[in-house]
Every structure is written in structure tokens, then in C-alpha cells.
Design a protein around this nucleic acid. Sequence first.
DNA 1: TTTTTAATTTATAATTAATATAATTAAAAG
DNA 2: CTTTTAATTATATTAATTATAAATTAAAAA
Lengths: 151, 151
Amino acid sequence: MEHRIEQIKKQLHAHSYKLTPQREATVRVLLEREEDHLSAEDVYLLVKEKSPEIGLATVYRTLELLSELKVVDKINFGDGVSRYDLRKEGAKHFHHHLVCIECGSVEEIVNDLLEDVERIVQNEWGFEVKDHRLTFHGICKQCQAATVKAT
Amino acid sequence: MEHRIEQIKKQLHAHSYKLTPQREATVRVLLEREEDHLSAEDVYLLVKEKSPEIGLATVYRTLELLSELKVVDKINFGDGVSRYDLRKEGAKHFHHHLVCIECGSVEEIVNDLLEDVERIVQNEWGFEVKDHRLTFHGICKQCQAATVKAT
DNA sequence: TTTTTAATTTATAATTAATATAATTAAAAG
DNA sequence: CTTTTAATTATATTAATTATAAATTAAAAA
Ligand SMILES: [Zn+2]
Ligand SMILES: [Zn+2]
Ligand SMILES: [Zn+2]
Ligand SMILES: [Zn+2]
């Protein structure tokens, strides 16, 4: 935890941004809830618990800043809100997601499954891939089991 | 064109929805601009040219309905708006996108490049894939050429 | 064809997410 | 310590989307 904060602090400084207490509080929330996919509002409410004086606009600006630094990735699962997802330590690419259309759960796939596909896109379409977004929509394990039981 | 409208009419009736003139006008715009990625507002303005009496809310509702019927796919490229993309005739899955981070262009890949990946997701994660969203972010051919020339 | 009915549209109003503004505060530099 | 710059707050505003209620209409039934 402290180690990653230190690391993010360095990244901020490298771009001559400061690690203010508000920014640190925001990063801590993201680290604590690494598995989740929080909206700006969600983050705001969680940060407020520990730093009640923070403003919503600051959280928005901080998340925007962290996106710019590739510390978080901004993603949209089709409900109206943007969600902010901490990039896994050292990952070059954004991880993938499995969204269940029954229960709404979101599972993560950390393995990069797109290396072959990216090679094809590069070679056959001449497109230089820098990053990707891959989300599967379907039925999660739990909901599959529930369906079988119900029949 | 007429053929696809007829087809969509049948799909609507199958769910006991009507094909109103407003809906037909909306579908025609989507068919005419099949390659584009229009926002609801974009669609509204284009429909208005031919049917000036239509309301924005109707366009929103129609697009929502067409999404539900899988005639269009709703997608978000990270700017604040949802875009509506006509599904290719007969396609089981949503096609892929190449978004250029330099010029903002959006190219389409109609081939399904994810069959192997979906097999892996199914077998190793036990997730039953129904659909997917795949977008690559990178540098398009034109911008690559421009960069080389500039150096 | 006329009637009937449920679906749909219109013309608002209301929500909600996100961004902009200006005054204030905190931090860094000299 | 004083000056300068960056960041935050509190508020207002914008922009996308959704909700509401009254009026209209497509399509099924008579
Ligand atoms: Zn994630
Ligand atoms: Zn599920
Ligand atoms: Zn380009
Ligand atoms: Zn497309």
C-alpha cells in the first residue's frame, strides 16, 4: 500500500503535480477497493468518510488526473456513469471484464488474452495498438448454476 | 434498404411494438449512415431534416428499443455520449473498433477476432459469453504515415 | 370500414453526471 | 518572510438522459 502510494507520488512529481492530502485520500480509497469498479460519486462518498471536507469536484479532477497518468482506467459498462479502475501494478494494458447480464456482477481477467489479436490488427489493418478495452457480456458461473438448479 | 426495414418491422411486431413513422424515419437515418457512430443528438438532427416534427425523447426511446432488439448496439468511446451502431446484417456479435488517439477516427473490424478468446473465457473462467465489446486505442494508418513524414 | 384499445408521441419538466468559475487556501520558491 | 503558483472549495452551469401526463395514432377486432 505505502509502496504504491510512494510510486504514484513519484509519477505525480515527474509531471510536476503535487500529492495533496485530498489526492492521497482518493488514491487510498482506490487501493482499498481495488477489486471494485467505483463511480466518481462512489469514490467521493468513500473518501468523505475519512476526509469529510473534500469536495466532489476535487475527486473528479483527481480521477481525471490519475487517468492521464494511467494509474487508473476510466471505463463505462453501459449504465450512465464512468467508473474508475486501478490499473494492476506494472500492467502495460488494461485488464478485461466479464459482466453478467443476469446479476450485474463484474469479474476481472488479469491475463492478457489479446496478444494474438493485436498482432493481427497490427499486421492486417496497419493499426498501431497502444491499449484496449475488452468486455464480455454473458452469464456468470453462479447464475449458470442457479439456472440449472431451477429447471 | 427496404428489405432491412421490412425485417426490422417484423422484429418489432414479434415483440408487439409498432413501426411508427417516427421509428421508420429513425431507422432510415441509421441505415443511411451505417458506417458512422452517431449520438442520439446526431440521429435526432438527421431525422429532423426529413421529419421536422419528431421529438428528441422519441429518438431516445426508439434507440433504446432498437438496442433491446439488438438491431443497434450502444457504445461509448469515452467522450460523454452514447453512440448507436447498427449491427451488421445477420451478425451474431458486435463488431470491433479501432479508435485513433491522434485524430479521433473510428474504423470498424467486421471479422470476429475473438472466437479463440471466447473459448478460453468459457473453458477457463466458466463464463458463458453472449456478446462482447472490443475497442483498440492506438494510431491509425494515416496518422502513422503523417508522423513518419514529419520526422 | 368503423370502432376500439393499447401503444406511442409530444411537449414539457426533472434528473443526473460532469464541468466551469471565482474566491480562498496551501505549498513551493526566492 | 514575501511572492508566486498550484490546488481546493463552494457554487453555478452545462449537457445528456429520463420521467410525466395529456393528446394522438397504428393496428387488431368487429
Ligand atoms: Zn476491473
Ligand atoms: Zn450472474
Ligand atoms: Zn489517426
Ligand atoms: Zn461500428
